[in-house]
C-alpha cells in the first residue's frame, strides 16, 4: 500500500478534479488503482468531519463563546495598574532589570532585597517557617480542598480551634527544615513567550550559597513554631491566632493566621484575578486563600500553583489588593 504519510500530505488536494481534459490532482492520481489509498483518504475525510463537529470557534458565528467580562475587566485593570505604577509591576531584582513581559513577575528574590519586604534576607522568616510545613494539601483545585490544604500549610488549624483537637500542623507536623527553596523562588512559570528567560534563570539566582543557611534558619523557625504550637496544644487554651514564628528570633518574622477566615477578602475570583494581575502574577486563580498577618501587618495569603509538582508559591498581598492596586507583603516558593 502507498505510504500513509505521503497520502496524508496530499490529502489537502481537492477530492474532485476529474473534469474532462484537466490534469488529475495528486489526490486523484494516488487513488487510482489503489484501494488502500482510497481507504486512507476516506479515513482522513471522516477525521475531518469529526474535527468539524467540534464546537465552532470562528468569531461571529452563532454560539461563538465570547471572552468573559470578568476576565476582560481583570486584564484591563492589570494593564491599567501596570501603566500607572510600573515600579510595582516590574521590580528590579538585585540590580538586574526585570525582563519585559511575564518574566518580570515579582518573586521572592526581589522581595528579599527590598526594604519593604517582610521576608528576612536570610531566606528564613515567616514564610521560612511555612517552608517546613506540609503543603501537600494545597494541591487541590477546588476552593474547598484548597482552603483545607492551606490550613495544612499553615499548620494552625488544630491549636487555634484548640479544645483538645489536634490540627494537621501539629499532629503530622513535618520535620523542621523540610525541603524549601529558601534562597530564591524558582521562576517555574515565568518563561517568556519569546524564549527569553527572566530572573528565574539559574545564572542569576542570588543567594545560591545561602540556601543551606536559609534552610537552617527555616528549620530553626519551624522548630520554634512547633514548640510554641505544642505548648498551646498542651495547655488547651483556645487562641484566636497562632504564631507561626517568633518575631524576636533573628531572621524570622511573625506570621499569624486566623483559621476561621478561610476565604478572606480575595475569595471573590474576579477580585482575586484583578489583584494577581496588578501584582504581575501570570495566573488568575489561587489554590487557596486566607487572611494572615505578616509582622503584624494584615494580609491575604494566596497559595499559587507553580507548574511544578509539589511546589507552591506562597504570596501574601495586602487585604485591599484588587483592581485598584495592590502590594506584595511576602513572596516565597516552597517545595512539598
Amino acid at each position: 500500500m502507498s505510504d500513509r504519510l505521503h497520502l496524508a500530505s496530499i490529502w489537502d488536494a481537492a477530492p474532485v478534479c476529474v473534469a474532462a481534459g484537466e490534469r488529475p490532482c495528486p489526490r486523484c492520481a494516488a487513488v487510482v488503482d489503489d484501494p488502500g489509498a482510497a481507504a486512507v483518504f476516506a479515513a482522513l475525510d471522516a477525521t475531518r468531519r469529526d474535527l468539524a463537529g467540534l464546537p465552532s470557534r470562528s468569531p461571529g458565528e452563532p454560539g461563538q463563546p465570547s471572552m468573559p467580562d470578568d476576565l476582560r475587566d481583570a486584564v484591563l485593570a492589570a494593564a491599567d495598574a501596570i501603566r500607572r505604577g510600573p515600579a510595582a509591576a516590574e521590580p528590579v531584582v538585585h540590580g538586574v532589570p526585570a525582563v519585559e513581559g511575564i518574566s518580570s513577575v515579582p518573586d521572592a528574590r526581589g522581595l528579599l532585597g527590598a526594604p519593604r519586604a517582610s521576608v528576612a534576607s536570610g531566606g528564613s522568616g515567616a514564610l521560612g517557617a511555612l517552608c517546613a510545613a506540609d503543603v501537600s494539601g494545597a494541591s487541590g483545585t477546588s476552593d474547598a480542598s484548597g482552603t483545607s490544604g492551606m490550613a495544612d500549610t499553615l499548620g494552625v488549624t488544630g491549636p487555634s480551634t484548640a479544645s483538645g483537637a489536634s490540627g494537621p500542623g501539629v499532629a503530622s507536623g513535618p520535620a523542621p527544615g523540610a525541603p524549601c527553596r529558601s534562597g530564591a523562588a524558582r521562576g517555574g512559570s515565568d518563561r517568556g513567550t519569546s524564549g527569553t528567560r527572566g530572573p528565574g534563570r539559574r545564572g542569576q539566582r542570588p543567594g545560591g550559597r545561602s540556601r543551606g543557611r536559609g534552610l537552617l534558619l527555616a528549620a530553626v523557625a519551624a522548630g520554634v513554631v512547633l514548640s510554641g504550637v505544642a505548648v498551646i496544644g498542651v495547655a488547651g487554651q483556645p487562641s484566636p491566632t497562632v504564631p507561626l514564628a517568633v518575631p524576636d528570633q533573628p531572621g524570622t518574622h511573625a506570621l499569624v493566621g486566623t483559621p476561621e477566615t478561610v476565604h478572606g477578602p480575595l475569595g471573590d475570583p474576579a477580585r482575586q484575578a484583578a489583584c494577581l494581575g496588578v501584582v504581575g502574577v501570570p495566573t488568575t486563580r489561587a489554590l487557596a486563600t486566607r487572611e494572615v498577618a505578616v509582622d503584624g501587618v494584615p494580609g491575604v495569603l494566596l497559595v499559587l500553583p507553580t507548574g511544578s509538582v509539589g511546589r507552591f508559591r506562597l504570596l501574601v498581598v495586602d487585604p485591599g489588593c484588587g483592581a485598584g492596586g495592590g502590594r506584595v507583603l511576602a513572596d516565597r516558593t516552597v517545595d512539598r
Partner: peptide, 21 residues
C-alpha cells in the same frame, strides 16, 4: 476554561508590556 483564562490573561498582559516594541 480555567486554563484558557490564565493563558489569555498572561498573553494579553505580555502583549501590553511589549506593545511599544
Amino acid at each position: 476554561a480555567e486554563d484558557a483564562r490564565e493563558a489569555v490573561q498572561e498573553a494579553l498582559l505580555t502583549a501590553f508590556r511589549r506593545l511599544d516594541g
